[in-house]
Write a protein that binds this DNA or RNA. Structure first.
Lengths: 215, 215
DNA sequence: ATTACTATATAGCGAGTAT
DNA sequence: TATACTCGCTATATAGTAA
């Protein structure tokens, strides 16, 4: 058995961020990993084979970056660890209402029937976009309810997850769901749905503070 | 070379929180780790030898919990990962002012001289206690400045770390430091010092929102 | 029932080296 | 210069089993 996670974490640290890469020779990677040049070479190959990194040759070694799949591995790891570390403090996220580009309403209407079947309520055709201050959390967790993809009128709609959320906005508490597209979108914000029109019924406006916990 | 981190993370997930334990037989640990009963037994011994877990025999196996040292390993891991995942979003913490029990002032006065030597300013004898909404972050990082322990008038004072912070409160920005006791305190809140009296000069009051980033 | 030892098979490491 | 192959040695895994 071979664990590649520790190497992925080391690489993540060097790479620095999702859209960055890190360039080094296999010997240097060996130093970073704490193994020989040969083993580093082998691990880089294995990590690529796993689909967790991409490696492109350059004059002085490889340019390495982390794939979406690698990022989900890191997110899963982070969630495991932080669920332990934040056990008592019950993880409250803080963010603010931001403007979406209006496409939420379109998609919600397409998924409405499926959502009703799954969650037992008909969602208001529109989403509340929330920017979380500590960075978009990975909400694809145990309690996430999956809706599989489907085709309608010749157009295919991908699977989504729905994570139950308890949201506080303007001193009101609302039970709602975060939409987690299965095809990893690189959206900065979280999209929330509920049976209510957040903006009308709860006077949610851009910049309003929201707090939520995940169920 | 053997990596114990992945096993520690698996255990952390099962254990659930710092002050909890998890009970299982070595076969069951084997299932969790994805290895045989024999290997699970061996890894539990190694983890204990590392000082990352404690294991106490019970009728049906072992009660396992994670030591302070194990927790720091997890924190280090979390920080590596989240520095990658939150690369662009530049990690802003949000919290609120809470009341301390007043002991801050006493300790700051004891450490004042050392702090002046190290940071070049004489701290106001009192701390601003901040509860971070996303849970107390681990601020024992690269930029943390260490003050070693000392003895004064027959009483010994443990080492502390000082992490530079840029804090915003009531629309004012203050450069200050978070105090990180070396002996892991299990305090929920963060204690901040600066040369200013936060409560007087910046009208900080309990419940006021603060935001800060770490330098 | 357990845990954990011993023995043996296999996986992994890295020196040497071809490319 | 590099990377990454082969191969001998060591480390690790687990079957068998004692305690």
């Amino acid at each position: 058995m071979v664990f590649l996670e520790p190497f992925l974490v080391s690489l993540a640290e060097e790479v620095g961020g999702c859209d960055c890469f890190f360039e080094a020779t296999t010997s240097e990677f060996g130093q970073i990993f704490g193994v020989s040049q040969q083993s580093a070479s082998r691990y880089l190959m294995l990590l690529e084979k796993q689909g967790w990194i991409t490696r492109a040759r350059s004059e002085k070694g490889f340019k390495v970056s982390i794939t979406d799949e690698g990022v989900s591995v890191l997110k899963r790891l982070e969630r495991k660890i932080s669920s332990f570390l934040n056990h008592d403090s019950e993880m409250t996220y803080v963010g603010e209402v931001v403007s979406g580009i209006g496409e939420g309403a379109y998609y919600v209407s397409k998924y409405a029937e499926k959502i009703n079947e799954t969650l037992g309520y008909s969602p208001y055709p529109g989403t509340l976009n929330v920017r979380v201050h500590s960075g978009k959390p990975d909400l694809d967790i145990k309690s996430t309810i999956k809706i599989s993809g489907f085709t309608s009128e010749g157009r295919s709609y991908g699977g989504v997850g729905l994570t139950p959320i308890v949201l506080t906005i303007n001193r009101k508490t609302i039970h709602c769901h975060a939409i987690i597209p299965e095809r990893t979108h690189h959206k900065l914000d979280l999209e929330l749905i509920s049976k209510h029109n957040f903006r009308k019924e709860f006077k949610a406006a851009d910049g309003d503070e929201v707090r939520f916990t995940v169920l």
